[in-house]
């Protein structure tokens, strides 16, 4: 569905992405793992057009999104959803307004209909009767749930997740993982998740790709990755300080 070809990006002379090649398949969960600061977020921001590459291409259904004008790209963006690390809820709006915001902006649906869709999406992420609360009143886990409801409110074909479990306790992390699985299975949506949470990765991934030193060094299913003997990958998956990746 998405093909990333030879993607390169540097910031102030520091190379972050050094020729990333990755194919994201339709209807599956692709998890991109890697250390903090290795450019996972940067890669994700390229996929959704928040950053422009120095060179390389990103093909969405065969068309290069990095070369599109704003109008064309906005049409593509309407088929995307994104859950941000801090959920990025608009703090001047209620939970209900947040979730319904994309519908308000892009559709002509009447208010009652939007209200119904919002309630339905909130129920799907396990929240009932929170529409009138403000984001500041929510816990971290609830914010993520609301963020997920907002990301899927337009029934997107592809949803991107930026560190969905960072900052959550283990139980909440697991419940978010369940939610990711449930919402993905229900609609066969394409999910792209970036994380360094190995437990989450093993639980939800159809495909795992490891980003290291600006390149995808390994890619495969959970079983394939568990068998893989690449020392860099092993060190990361086993969470050891010693190994080829130097901490300092």
């Amino acid at each position: 569905m998405i093909e990333i070809i030879e993607l390169k990006k540097s910031f102030n002379g520091k190379v972050v992405l050094d020729g990333v090649d990755l194919t994201i398949e339709r209807g599956r969960i692709t998890v991109i793992i890697g250390r903090s600061g290795e450019g996972k977020s940067v890669l994700l921001k390229h996929i959704i057009g928040l950053l422009r590459p120095d060179s390389g291409r990103i093909l969405f259904e065969g068309k290069d999104i990095t070369k599109m004008n704003e109008e064309e790209f906005h049409e593509i963006l309407k088929r995307f959803g994104m859950l941000f690390q801090g959920a990025a809820l608009f703090d001047s709006m209620t939970v209900g307004e947040n979730v319904g915001f994309p519908l308000m902006e892009h559709t002509d649906l009447p208010h009652e209909k939007i209200g119904k869709i919002v309630a339905e999406k909130l129920r799907r992420v396990g929240l009932v009767g929170v529409e009138d609360m403000m984001p500041a009143e929510l816990s971290g886990g609830m914010k993520k749930r609301v963020g997920l409801a907002r990301a899927i409110v337009m029934d997107p074909e592809i949803v991107l997740f930026d560190e969905p479990t960072t900052g959550l306790d283990p139980i909440m992390s697991d419940s978010i993982a369940d939610l990711i699985l449930e919402t993905q299975r229900a609609l066969e949506t394409t999910y792209v998740v970036i994380t360094h949470d190995i437990k989450l990765t093993y639980k939800i991934a159809d495909t795992i790709a490891m980003l290291h030193k600006g390149k995808i060094i390994e890619k495969g299913t959970v079983e394939e990755m568990k068998q893989n003997t690449n020392p860099v990958l092993r060190q990361f998956l086993e969470g050891r300080a010693e190994g080829p990746i130097k901490v300092f």
Partner: peptide
């Protein structure tokens, strides 16, 4: 302050990803 907070908490990026300029 309001726009700055929206920027650092990624709310401006969120607007963009919802196809809103």
């Amino acid at each position: 302050t309001e726009l700055g907070t929206m920027r650092v908490t990624e709310q401006i990026d969120a607007l963009y990803t919802m196809a809103i300029n």
